[in-house]
Nucleic acid binder design. Structure first.
Length: 777
DNA sequence: TGAACAGGCGTTTTT
DNA sequence: CGCCTGTTCA
């Protein structure tokens, strides 16, 4: 068994104990993925049919990669027939084939968060409830929490405690809203994310024969990232595994970071109680990171009260200390990171793809995008607004959704008057109110428009427009019976007027919208091809739509193999690894988030998040924080994150140690770099006049702490050798930017002097002298 | 009917 | 700041 070679003792055990319940506690970087893949390969090699294996992963991408690796051991065709994917996608698939039992159409729509919120807003409006008191987002998260704990509407209404709790929270109509919301989804033939799990539970509980079928099918079950499963997922796994009990869960309680969406850390903490015979294997040797990184991460996580005791260690090199950079502002922070990446790229021949920039919130992205762009460093942002959430893409998708499921009122209301065809809000409302009063769906009314028209109270012009619109939709539906999804989608884009409407807008944004629609069509083409190659593939439109609703940004990377720096939130970085990690924005109220600093539990989760972030790093880690940050249109002062002080200082190295002394303004005068800016530094102002000047006016306090400019500085190259004096006004040459003039120098610590240089072609750049390798001409 | 604009508001993480 | 809502005007 070649694939068993090179496993350590614990790994070997985890791979080869194939019968009975098994819990693998896998510390960060301990070869968890390897164990999972090899375990599955081992199952198949030992005669278990891939047909009987169910593997639940955290992302679809993880599943795809794992399949690939398994394929290399046992052959591609076996690997492909394993059921592997996220909870949501696997059970969406099962629900499609069993939906009729629950009263849903098999091509039910999957609502994403935005769809759910829209439905909820309508419900709240319909019930005449004050939307200010019942913020849709807040209501949604409560409903979600109920669903994830299998508290159905009925269960809720039978539970005085819950109702009282909501009443105390000024939400006494929550039950009503919840009820209406569920009804609405049902009528629309739609399930939200939580429904995919909740309805699966319903299916398995209400229909024992269905449960038996899948129990028999999934004789070997593996669950990755078990620490991040919620109660609903836990029950599904438990039900399916109860016959054979060949269940293997893999996880690390120290990396549980999804409690906000219902993840229940007790699922893993109590595994032994559920399966008293369970064997526990601990993987504690970290193969990923240097000792310094592992030790620093351990130091922080040890501050958590609630955890399994573990001894994660590394036998790799000690490695460099973690470098800490204290930035003056978010822009400065981003500038440092970009300069640092550029420098390491040059001096250590690191590929750009070796680097990750990890942050707590998506809104931090922008500054880094700016700084990387300025240096022409290629990058890719993960997460944020995904491709499929763009308006123009959602619009086309809404048409397609409607074709597949006429009852999807969300989709209908999105497209009925888009592009504008004269069916305004008033007319739409009449239609909806009438449909509701007759207790039929809007599509039924449109199906029999002639019959209902006298009662609708709409004028003939509108009625004609409605009829035309519906005839168009019907024509698409007919077409769908004979043509493939791509052809139909193409036709929809054209005939609905969507493309034309978008093409009329010749602004850059407008052009990119057309491209996005084109891209959607392409991805559809790709999906169909892919599905046709797989044995039990389904190239149908509804499968495509379902896969989109459940796809994450990570899944869509297409593993674009180009050499790029990765930017993402820490949450998205789970499971990944990078040679060099920049963990940025280490400030109180940002990380830990001000939303999660009130209770110990919340704080511990933030700490686990920190742990996850740091343990992504293989060779080098950088921490940065800014003492002031541009936020919500204002400058906010910031304090360093408490997590920084939780890392023993022996693991840290402060890049700008001289900084502290400079905070004291010895002259007693209020000074800032702008006052003393050389008169000829006009391009400095040009760079970003609004922002800089605003800051200057608004926060004299912050600015007064700023660096004092220096008149001359010594160029020190990274190796610390040969040097050269340089001063404002000098002509210099830069490897990439060419020739330019130094307009400004900044800083007294020779390791950290910054220069502003106006280049002939590239414009102004902020350079760190140490890194920039300027040559005086 | 719909585009254009002003004002208010909330700001975490995601399947 | 940027998103969303509501209002105004053509």
């Amino acid at each position: 068994m070649k694939y068993l070679q090179g496993l350590n003792e614990a790994q070997y055990q985890a791979v080869t104990m194939i019968e009975g319940p098994l819990m693998v506690l896998a510390g960060a970087g301990s070869g968890k993925t390897r164990v999972l893949t090899m375990r599955i390969a081992h199952l198949i090699t030992n005669g278990v049919s891939p047909f009987h294996i169910l593997a639940l992963t955290f992302t679809n991408k993880a599943a795809r990669e794992m399949k690939e690796r398994i394929g290399k051991v046992v052959g591609e065709s076996d690997a492909k027939s394993i059921w592997m994917g996220t909870f949501h996608s696997v059970f969406a698939r099962i629900l499609r084939s069993e939906a009729h039992l629950l009263g849903f159409p098999s091509n039910f729509t999957i609502y994403d968060t935005q769809d759910s919120l829209n439905v909820l807003k309508k419900v709240i409006k319909e019930l005449n409830i004050d939307a200010d008191l019942y913020k849709p987002k807040k209501v949604m998260s409560r409903i979600s929490a109920y669903k994830n704990n299998l508290i159905t509407v009925r269960a809720y209404l039978n539970n005085p405690e819950l109702m009282e709790a909501d009443e105390r929270a000024n939400m006494k109509y929550l039950g009503q809203i919840y009820g209406k919301y569920v009804e609405s989804c049902f009528r629309n033939g739609a399930m939200d994310f939580d429904d995919l799990l909740l309805r699966t539970n319903e299916l398995l509980t209400r229909f024992p024969e269905v449960l038996a079928k899948y129990q028999d099918r999934f004789r070997y079950i593996l669950v990755d990232e078990y620490q991040d499963t919620n109660h609903s997922q836990y029950l599904i796994v438990k039900a399916l595994a109860s016959k054979f009990e060949n269940i293997c869960v893999v996880g690390d309680d120290a990396q549980s970071i999804y409690s906000f969406r219902g993840a229940n850390i007790y699922n893993i903490l109590n595994f032994k109680k559920d399966y008293p015979d369970a064997v526990t294997v601990s993987l504690e040797q970290n193969y990923r990171s240097t000792q310094n990184i592992v030790d620093a991460a351990n130091a922080v996580i040890s501050k958590n009260v609630q955890q399994f005791k573990k001894n994660v260690f590394s036998e790799n090199e000690t490695g460099e200390k973690i470098k800490v950079y204290r930035a003056l502002s978010d822009a400065d922070e981003a500038g440092f990171v970009a300069a640092n990446i550029w420098e390491l790229h040059n001096s250590q021949q690191r590929k750009f793809s070796d680097f990750a920039i990890l942050y707590r919130t998506n809104s931090q992205t922008r500054a880094f995008e700016d700084s990387l762009r300025k240096k022409n460093i290629p990058y890719r942002v993960y997460g944020g607004l995904s491709f499929y959430q763009r308006k123009e893409v959602k619009d086309l998708l809404a048409y397609l959704r409607l074709l597949v499921n006429e009852n999807d009122n969300e989709a209908l209301s999105r497209v009925i008057n888009y592009p504008a065809r004269g069916i305004g809000e008033t007319s739409q409302n009449k239609l909806i109110v009438f449909a509701d009063s007759q207790n039929i769906s809007v599509s039924k009314v449109l199906d029999n428009l002639g019959f209902y028209s006298p009662q609708l109270g709409l004028n003939n012009g509108i009625l004609t427009k409605l009829a035309d619109f519906w005839a168009m939709i019907k024509a698409f539906e007919v077409m769908l019976k004979t043509e493939d999804a791509y052809t139909v989608a193409m036709e929809v884009a054209k005939r609905s007027g969507l493309i034309k409407f978008l093409k009329d807008d010749q602004t850059p944004e407008g052009i990119s919208r057309v491209e996005n629609v084109q891209e959607l069509l392409n991805s559809m083409r790709g999906f169909i091809d892919e599905q046709q190659q797989v044995e039990d593939g389904d190239p149908g439109l509804s499968n495509f739509l379902g896969s989109i609703a459940l796809s994450t940004d990570q899944d869509n990377t297409k593993d674009d193999d180009r050499d790029k720096v990765s930017l993402m939130t820490i949450h998205l970085s789970k499971g990944l690894e990078f040679p060099v990690v920049h963990l940025v924005g280490l400030e109180e109220n940002l990380f830990p988030s001000f939303m999660s600093s009130s209770t110990r539990e919340e704080l511990e989760e933030e700490r686990r998040l920190f742990y996850v972030a740091l343990t992504r790093a293989e060779k080098q880690a950088f921490f940065t924080y800014a003492i002031s940050r541009f936020q919500w249109g204002k400058i906010t002062d910031a304090e360093p994150s408490r997590f920084l002080s939780e890392v023993n200082s022996e693991f840290l190295e402060f890049i700008n140690p001289a900084m502290e002394s400079r905070f004291v303004n010895h002259s007693g005068l209020k000074s800032n770099i702008f006052d003393e800016m050389p008169a000829d530094a006009r391009s400095f102002k040009k760079l970003d006049p609004k922002k800089k000047i605003e800051r200057n006016e608004e926060t004299p306090k912050t600015m007064s702490r700023n660096l004092k400019p220096v008149a001359t500085a010594r160029i020190i190259n990274p190796s610390g050798q040969s040097s050269q004096d340089i001063e404002v006004g000098d002509q210099v040459r830069h490897d990439r930017f060419g020739i330019g003039e130094v307009t400004f120098l900044d800083g007294t610590d020779p390791q950290n002097i910054k220069a502003k240089v106006v280049f002939q072609h590239e414009g102004e750049k902020n350079l760190i002298l140490k890194f920039a390798k300027l040559t005086k001409i």
